[in-house]
């Protein structure tokens, strides 16, 4: 089930590579490619972040990514997505996540791209450790449960807003 379109690891992200991976073999098959790059913010909840590290359970993250890819395929059959998440220490302003979504129509490409980031934040087993000048904190967001239908609906609703 190896798919170059889904990856997690310490490598620097290249959204252009992801855009190429979803473009397809046939030139012009997709009229729209939407990309999203999430970068490390220097302020969080009013505190100045000096460094940051992402930890992941990589084999499970790849499972979660495949679940998200399959959900995208079910909602937007014409869309293709690729997304990579970076782990380890990441400098301020650098990319922690990159997503590309392609579709013949822009509405589906935008929606699919948004769905990936919303869903990734809900279920990907990734943890963010932020360090400030006077301490550190593990950021904790959603309880990871891919079978939670309400969370899935919320991600879909946001994607189509």
């Amino acid at each position: 089930m190896s798919d170059r379109r889904l990856a997690i690891g310490p490598h620097v992200l290249d959204v252009g590579e992801l855009a190429a991976l979803v473009a397809g073999d046939e030139p012009g098959a997709h009229g729209a490619v939407v990309t999203f790059v999430g970068t490390v913010r220097n302020l969080n909840q009013g505190r100045r972040v000096i460094r940051l590290e992402y930890e992941a359970y990589e084999p499970l993250a790849l499972r979660a990514f495949a679940i998200i890819r399959d959900e995208v395929a079910a909602h937007w059959p014409s869309a293709r997505v690729a997304f990579h998440h970076r782990t380890g220490p990441i400098a301020l302003g650098e990319a922690s996540v990159a997503i590309a979504a392609a579709s013949p129509r822009r509405a589906d490409a935008f929606a699919a791209c948004r769905y990936v980031i919303e869903r990734l934040k809900q279920i990907a087993p990734v943890w963010k450790h932020e360090y400030f000048e006077d301490g550190d904190v593990w950021i904790e967001g959603a309880v990871a449960d891919p079978s939670d239908e309400k969370a899935k609906e919320e991600a879909f609703r946001r994607s189509c807003a």
Partner: peptide, 9 residues
Amino acid sequence: AFLPPVAGG
């Protein structure tokens, strides 16, 4: 594996 609430992205 035990997973506390996640925070990717």
